[in-house]
Design a protein around this nucleic acid. Sequence first.
DNA 1: ACCTGTGAACCCCTTCACAGCG
DNA 2: CGCTGTGAAGGGGTTCACAGGT
Lengths: 248, 248
Amino acid sequence: MVDRPRRPIPEATVARLPVYARSLGELTRDGVATISSEQLAELAGVNAAKVRKDLSYLGSYGTRGVGYDVEYLLYQMSRELGLTQDRPVAIVGMGNLGHALANYHGFSDRGFVVAALIDADPTKVGERMGELVVRSIAELPAVVAEHQIAIGVIATPAAVAQDVADRLVDAGVRSILNFASAMISVPPDVSLRVVDLAVELQILSFYQQRGKVTLAAVPDPMRSPEGSTVVEADDGPTAVTAAAVARS
Amino acid sequence: MVDRPRRPIPEATVARLPVYARSLGELTRDGVATISSEQLAELAGVNAAKVRKDLSYLGSYGTRGVGYDVEYLLYQMSRELGLTQDRPVAIVGMGNLGHALANYHGFSDRGFVVAALIDADPTKVGERMGELVVRSIAELPAVVAEHQIAIGVIATPAAVAQDVADRLVDAGVRSILNFASAMISVPPDVSLRVVDLAVELQILSFYQQRGKVTLAAVPDPMRSPEGSTVVEADDGPTAVTAAAVARS
DNA sequence: ACCTGTGAACCCCTTCACAGCG
DNA sequence: CGCTGTGAAGGGGTTCACAGGT
């Protein structure tokens, strides 16, 4: 309806938008009406120039001499991030991590609903977790269709991660968040993000091994507070086109 | 003892080393003796040129016309990552995520030992989890000293994340992995990595919102398989110098 | 013949610095 | 006078392409 996204937003910027959105949400709750790039930078842990550049990709929503209207900026950002309506998420793999994610209440406040839980283990299928019942992996296509699943979260052992990814893709899921310690390949039209806990620790281990170092990391796009040694490669973070990774 | 790290290793490369190490570990288990940059690239989900550049920062461990000796390369890489001896990790915050992390067995195989569990809730302190007993946050300095904690993992609510970080730093911990949805500031000599689950989902949401996109992400340094739309900004991951983020 | 190691080109992102507007 | 929005400069990382060993 409004002006459509004009120019392509850089990947690095996209990775920071959620961080700004989080800060803006807190400001809204605190009743703050207006904020400068300098102040927002402080809250998000980046520098002011970066904030202004990033926000400029969304449009000219600031007022010179004043700053940004918190509520309006948050609205525009949420729209850009597709958070104006809740997106249904399916979690596959009800081990320790899957359980934790299923019970994590941080999602509901931030634009997502855990709409389905899935496992391959027959002894786990049927188990009740809050409002949900664990469904069988065999039912995946039905579950995805039924709940209009937008994002699939893989929390299975590494050995079956690729198989699960394939099933998610076949079922029509086009966004995947992979927590398994395995590289998975998806078609070029599927978005994939990767979080490997052991990898995070190993990166920290590297820098500990030496003297201090200066890194930068926020959602791989995720740099941390400027100034401290935020070791988030960015690889941060971490978006890659799946096309190149042909199925081995 | 051996030749010390010659030139500084780029942050982006550091974030990928753990991914290579993971692949090399699998190759070792499969009894593969030698591997080319092309093959390793396939396994790690990056391109061959990048693999060669990255490995060249470690030294000249390959053989022209042949490739790399898997075991030797893995040894050198582990040494560089400081994984030759296990590093003790403390998890602070025994909620859903803290529990999951405490029970996650992927750490022990990859160079880390969960050596201590900590919570502020008196009803949780004393609780037994596997071989460990949950200790009070008040005991943090003693626990850190006792177990020589190298890395602190924050799995608390966002509201107390900064306080926990301050306590960890005061206790002498110089590497922190933050799972809380809050920006935290640490001194410049402390390494910080950030993983925010909601942020990851929101990044995926952005790309879903539009047509497909091409991203790149491995530990923000974490890009995914080349070719697919790996939406990991890299940003990977995500290392920043804390100094800049003065305590507000 | 093959594959590594690397200088050089290229590209993206960050940072600077200031013009432009309120 | 203040703060945004942005062209331009600067830096880092990726990719190319080939020289150099085996």
